[in-house]
């Protein structure tokens, strides 16, 4: 190795710092611009009611995105999040007594047992993914693609084309109840986000996540158990998805196949639009929160303005593409800065 890089010293002045912060600044600026645009375009957008709407609309995505942030920080990906959410949501309904009209051969259990079993189910799905990625060595992209299909299969097997409506009372409350004016699901989302942030920023495990994502080989050569960290983030992702799935089912008022299909793209978009690096090691829950708000404002705001509803889909795609460009570009700038 040459010493030709020996002249590289910290660049003084604000430009270098700004370039290094692009991944944090760009999403926030996007959010401000979107809020300003929609506020001008529609008087109904910037109201307290609508802010509450947005918060409620992004809550399920937020819980999924927390787990996904861990995975993407490690430079891996989990494509099974929405499918696992759906499967676990259906599991909890499967273990709950359903109305006579629902024709499912389910196993009614007490609420606590149903919740516990569903959580264990998410843990098991995460463990299988973790085993495949770390022990067998299947790339996470492919392994979680298989888990996506397995999750869909579990959904299909359990409900057999039917729709279940009942979930245990605590889940019902957290998913669709509220304390005062604040919906419980928003509270749960905020708590999960806060917990995710605390773990990533202030615990030893969180540090390992950043280090493994920053340079996996160096983590290995520093004596970090890289496989254990990777396994843990995949299990965390599955459990977050499971919680989101249970609450989501209560939130939507039904448990059926394919009801979380949009959430894979939404959760990945939220993490990436927020500025967490696709190459790992950079970003965090703060970024994810901004990403969630950008997506939430965009989805909600487009409903408030007169726009072709089919065009909305395209606009979302373009926004995601723009975020990806910024993400990759920010990585390059930071590497140079």
């Amino acid at each position: 190795m040459s010493t030709s890089d020996s002249a590289v010293l910290p660049r003084s002045g604000g430009m270098g710092w700004l370039k290094g912060q692009l991944r944090n600044i760009a999403p926030f600026a996007t959010l401000l611009v979107l809020v300003a645009l929609f506020s001008i375009a529609s008087p109904s957008f910037a109201t307290l009611d609508n802010v509450a709407n947005i918060a409620r609309q992004v809550s399920v995505t937020a819980i999924i995105a927390v787990g996904l942030t861990f995975v993407i920080l490690c430079a891996e990906i989990d494509l099974s999040v929405a499918s696992v959410a759906n499967a676990v949501g259906i599991m909890v309904a499967f273990f709950t007594l359903q109305d006579q009209s629902v024709n499912i051969a389910n196993i009614p259990l007490p609420g606590a047992a149903a919740i516990l079993l569903a959580l264990l189910g998410s843990l098991a799905l995460g463990a299988v993914t973790a085993f495949g990625v770390t022990v067998i060595g299947i790339p996470s992209f492919i392994m979680t693609l298989a888990m996506l299909q397995i999750g869909a299969g579990i959904c299909a097997m359990l409900v057999r084309g039917q729709i279940a409506y009942s979930v245990p009372a605590p889940i019902e409350m957290l998913g669709s109840g509220s304390i005062g004016p604040v919906p419980w699901i928003v509270v749960v989302a905020v708590l999960v986000l806060a917990l995710g942030h605390i773990v990533l920023s202030y615990t030893r495990f969180g540090r390992y996540v950043y280090m493994v994502g920053g340079n996996r080989e160096a983590a290995e050569y520093s004596g970090v158990n890289v496989k254990l960290v990777l396994a843990a983030v995949l299990v965390i992702s599955a459990v977050c998805s499971g919680i989101a799935g249970m609450l989501g089912v209560a939130h939507f008022g039904s448990a059926q196949q394919n009801e979380f299909d949009n959430y894979l793209l939404d959760a990945i978009s939220a993490v990436v639009v927020g500025g967490t690096s696709l190459f790992g090691g950079q970003g965090g829950i703060g970024n994810t929160v901004v990403g969630l708000l950008v997506l939430g404002v965009l989805n909600n705001g487009l409903d408030h303005v007169q726009i072709d509803s089919f065009l909305k889909i395209l606009i979302r795609g373009l926004i995601l593409l723009l975020a990806l460009v910024i993400n990759v570009y920010a990585q390059r700038l930071r590497a140079k800065a």
């Binding site: 280090m211 920053g214 340079n215 080989e217 983590a219 050569y221 520093s222 950079q282 590497a335």
Partner: peptide, 8 residues
């Protein structure tokens, strides 16, 4: 390259 975390 394989022993250090350049971004940290």
């Amino acid at each position: 390259r394989s022993m250090l975390f350049a971004q940290e």
